Amino acid sequence: MLFETLKLYPSWDIEKTAIPQRSRLYHLEPIGIGTPYVESLTGYVQRIAHEHCVTVRRLTITEIAPLMGKEAKLLDESISKVFGTGRDRTAFNGTGLMATNLVGAMSALTGRLDLRYLTLLPWAQVISKRGLLRRHRAWCPKCYQQWHDNHTSVYEPLLWSINTAQVCPYHHQPLQEQCPYCHQRQLTISGDSRTGHCNKCGKWLGNNRYKTVVTSQIKSEAERNRQLNVANNLGELVAVTPTLNYPPNFQKLSNTISTYILQVLKSSIPAFSRQSGMNKATIGLWCKGKVIPQIDNLLVLTHYLEISLLDFLTTDVLLADSKNTCLEPELNVVKQPRKSYKHLDLERKQVLNVVLIEVLKEYPAPRANASKVLLITDRIKTQRKISYFWLDLFSKA
């Protein structure tokens, strides 16, 4: 009789596998984080809608609105109650509360924790939101066409939404703000937005075979170089955002401005205002930490100081005796000696009073023009001499 040998097989693990939490929408990775051409938050919303084969309007009303405290039943198929008017929608890529709310909603829907880098939120303490973002959509047709021809994702870079960025840093041509077909400007994001297409007529904006509508002329090579330098400075700023260990502080920025003016340049605030052409009161408010500088003023300031915008906002100025650098403008101004005025004695005052009374008796009254003033002055001098003559005569008698 043959004995069968028993084999020991590995036991089964009947415990349930832990399934990671699923996101409501696709865990779509943003484009270009850590580069000058990082994607904008409004552009990311458009790509999410395209990946789910729905319009931005439908995505906003059914998914985004409830997370932003809006009831979908009350929206009546309009996203204006969620995104606001055209002027308000530019703020979604900026530094304020609207950008914070949209980042929170999209992070909850996609499970992404890096969506704040698609905005300028990390720079909220050192860059004013006033004049920061353009009110209308802007784009580079050559970038659109290049991405389309290379079969890569077409998207909306954050750099295009910044107001002071006027040229494409790669193709060196002005950014467009009007559709070449319907000649209309477009909102930053709308219910019918499609990346690379006109929000009004739906035409493709990347085909550069049409006659380009140039909205901003670059008249000289120097102006072109200046605008390219601005675009490069802004590109460096958005590229370094994910690597910041802590957000820049406004108090530190105000100390930096004071240190550069008063110690590096060895100048006073009024003198620096005259040299740079910037407003003296504005510079003083920066130094005192009362006003956050606007992006265009920061670019003018850094251009004058010959330092990049990124270094100016992030680099420590290590100088001796840097405490209390924000001095009052008058402390560094050489005070001019006051002019000394000769006071009239009582006798001269009486004579001058008699002359002025005689002048006031004239009819019609003398007009206050230059010739009349000179005439009255000569008359006063003449009558003063006559008065002094009679005074001397009576004193000798």
Rank of each mutant, 00 (worst) to 15 (best):
T5A: 10
Y9P: 01
P10S: 11
D13I: 02
E15C: 09
K16L: 01
R22G: 02
R24E: 12
V38A: 14
L41N: 06
H52D: 01
G69P: 03
E71Q: 09
D76I: 03
K81M: 09
K81R: 11
V82Y: 15
V82D: 10
G96A: 02
G96D: 05
A105L: 11
M106P: 03
L120V: 06
W123E: 09
V126K: 01
I127G: 01
K129C: 08
R130Q: 08
T152E: 05
V154I: 06
A165P: 00
H171K: 00
Q173G: 04
Q173F: 00
L175G: 00
Q178T: 15
P180D: 01
H183M: 04
L187D: 09
K200Y: 06
L205R: 00
N207K: 07
V214N: 04
Q217V: 11
I218F: 08
K219Y: 14
R226I: 08
L234S: 01
E236P: 00
P247S: 12
K252I: 07
I257V: 15
A271M: 04
S273Y: 06
C287L: 02
K288E: 08
Q294D: 12
D311G: 05
D316K: 05
V317M: 09
L318R: 13
L319Y: 01
P329C: 01
P337H: 03
S371D: 11
R384V: 09
W390T: 12
